[in-house]
Amino acid sequence: MILKMPIQNKLIKLYDFSMMIIETIRDFPTALKNRKDLLNEMYVIGTQSFWLVFFGGLFSGVILAIETGHNLEKFGATLLISRTISLGMVRELGPVITGILLAARTGAKNTSELGSMQLSEQVEALKAFGVSPIEKLVVPRVVAAVIMFLPLTFVADMAGIIGGMFITNTTFHVDLVYFWRTATDVLDYKDIFVGTIKPMFFAFFIAIISCYYGLTTKGGTTNLGKNAINSVVMSSLIVLTLDFIFTKVVWELL
């Protein structure tokens, strides 16, 4: 019995989470009805995460350029740096860095906001007055994340490629025009498709996981803190797991 309880509880939580995903997808059209909340969430994600994502992408590109540059230099192949940075940023680092940074930024925000609403009976108030919390609180956050993660990933990609370009030019003396041309030429539709679809899935799961942890907060502020941590940890793990699935499975299917 003692051993069974945690497993049962986990299964119940998994069921609740699955139901929340189904309800959220079912209620997606209500995002238009709550467009004020949607626009507000989009604004918050876009404006407050811009510089975080920009610098995250920039330094990823710069570090990638330095590390690959030093190794390729040994073989006299510094001209290949641009290909590595471009493919690395668009297919992998851009979406993953954006996902992990936003799992922390947006995930913690969603969990703490909804968690404190839950603790102060504001969520109960919504239900009591006949308003679905999924429709009013979850859908706008999830849709806003799905819409905004894509341009933010583009920002991270561009910052990384441009940062890498300048480092490659100043450290390894690769011509800027040559770098830019090969960096863009090497990308095909498959790369751009994977780099575009990944952030949408990351956004969906980050937003819904953080909302789930927020809405299931019970007890007091200590549990709110724990849920905020769990939300960020779980979202980050999901980003890495999904990235692996996309790289291994989806890439091979395409």
Partner: peptide
């Protein structure tokens, strides 16, 4: 529920 109003103990104002 829309036919029922409730005043919570902690008010639950947004």
């Amino acid at each position: 529920r829309r036919k029922i109003g409730i005043v919570f103990q902690g008010n639950a104002l947004f």
